[in-house]
Write a protein that binds this DNA or RNA. Structure first.
Lengths: 272, 272
DNA sequence: GCTAATTTGGAATATATGTTCTATTTTGCT
DNA sequence: AGCAAAATAGAACATATATTCCAAATTAGC
């Protein structure tokens, strides 16, 4: 046989499988065939299940794993499980460590945030529902005026969208709570609301969504996860789950979605 | 509480999660949030891993599963393993797919921005100078008050940093031009200025940098490229070159740097 | 500010699952 | 056909993981 190295990537795994499957006794060949046809099951099955699927004994499947270069089934499974979640380390605990130990230079911290941002972006692409996105664009493109609200952590996103809309000559209004002036009466028929809110959900934002949707106006919401209180309203929801780094998020994915939405609306909108 | 039935579909699971998450004590709520944001992990993780991710004890996560109507974690996991249909399109194939086949649609646009963001992040890591970053942290950590200025496109960054500093009890002041009130006299000895500006450089921001550095106060600047007009002043410069798509930039890299800077300052700063 | 009820953390326990071992069967060779 | 080598099945063992339990801490009500 060739190298004894453990496959560390799905690709390497496939190559090894192909390379080995020629010269395999009956039962082990069954394993190879079954695995080739059901690679995705490895991540969520037990040896017993895989063995049954292949029509062999667990011990046979075990030997099969070892021939592929792994120490056992668990090691092989880990490869598939890790590649499934795309390496999404637990940042919240890592930040705690950074804080406590105070070790790690700013550069190391930057590396962490870059990594978190990268993971968030990849995840965004995987989880966004194209249909919801299209619907959101349609709603906002039709609106006579887009009202934008986002407080605290969401404010940067709201303000960036306001900037982008302004640049593209799309009528939009950023509802910031400057001076506690609540310009709620600016919302009129034909308008739409774009609400951005993340846990912990600011009451003002929720209130505004409630008020606006009570008037029958359409609402588009950018929020996190599915437990958002916005689910109670008939809004078009775009959910982004940003990798959490302690109390902070880099907002990479959120801003990406935001700018996409803004540009799509700007281009779709009937001129003037 | 409502029904006691075991959720038998992901949809039912989500509904149950939403319905229950309102009235949940602290730790259980953490579980709910983490699960909502990481549903895909349930199929391939152990209770211990899920619990750690949520920042709780395994036993707490266990109770959470039971509140959702399952007998335990295993039963809940089975739901996700069974409904796991395999075929998880990995990031790169999904990206290609969206780019080509969905051309012109919002989803394709999203793919472009995600890719641009990813490239920007990678570039950020390569180009940032650790020494400059450390110096910036040092300057801001020593300042009695951090004055933040950033207009137009830079305003989201400025406001996010203001938010982050506030969260960490770091004295900071966001100089927005609300009502054209220019609070320049708020700047005092011992303070520092954090200026964020990108081409085309807003005059107000440059003016402020000039005024502040004329008083001998330290300035940290986040800007693009090396031809920034800020080079004329004795400021610590962190340059980010964001990959742009069309006329817009997703700001991914800039925000990443911003939040890094904020957290680094927050942790380095002497308490109180 | 005290008491009762709820919630939580951590260790103890039970169970499921992976892994190894060996007698038995099968295969390949002369 | 008879022998040696390889492969297999099934049981025995080891480990990892889920689950439960209870004392300590927290919260809510009075």
């Amino acid at each position: 046989m060739g190298d004894i190295g453990v496959p560390t990537t799905i690709k390497a795994f496939e190559e090894r499988l192909l390379e080995v499957s020629e010269s395999l006794p009956k039962r082990l060949r069954q394993c190879a065939d079954y695995v080739a046809a059901n690679k995705d099951r490895i991540a969520v099955s037990t040896v017993a299940e895989m063995a049954e699927g292949a029509g062999v004994q667990p011990s046979a499947f075990m030997r099969f794993c070892q021939i592929l270069g792994f120490s056992g089934f668990s090691e092989m499974q880990r490869l598939f499980r890790d590649s499934y979640v795309g390496g999404w380390p637990d940042y919240s605990t890592r930040l705690d460590h950074l804080r406590e130990k105070a070790e790690g230079s700013p550069s190391a911290l930057l590396a962490e945030f870059v990594e978190a941002g990268r993971a968030s972006l990849e995840n965004l692409l995987k989880t966004i529902e194209p249909h919801a996105l299209e619907q959101a664009v349609k709603i906002l493109a039709r609106a006579q005026m887009i009202h934008i609200i986002g407080m605290r952590r969401s404010f940067p996103v709201a303000s960036y969208m306001a900037y982008a809309f302004e640049k593209m000559n799309v009528p939009a209004m950023l509802h910031s709570a400057v001076g506690r002036l609540e310009n709620r009466n600016a919302v009129r028929d034909g308008d739409a609301l774009l609400a951005i809110t993340f846990s912990p959900y600011t009451a003002d934002t929720i209130d505004m969504v409630e008020a606006v949707s009570a008037h029958g106006l359409p609402v588009v919401a950018i929020t996190d996860t599915i437990v958002s209180p916005l689910r109670k309203f008939p809004a078009t929801i775009l959910s982004v789950s940003e990798v959490d780094f302690g109390a902070f998020r880099s907002l990479s994915a959120t801003l990406c979605l935001a700018i996409t939405l803004a540009v799509a609306v700007g281009t779709e909108r009937p001129e003037k």
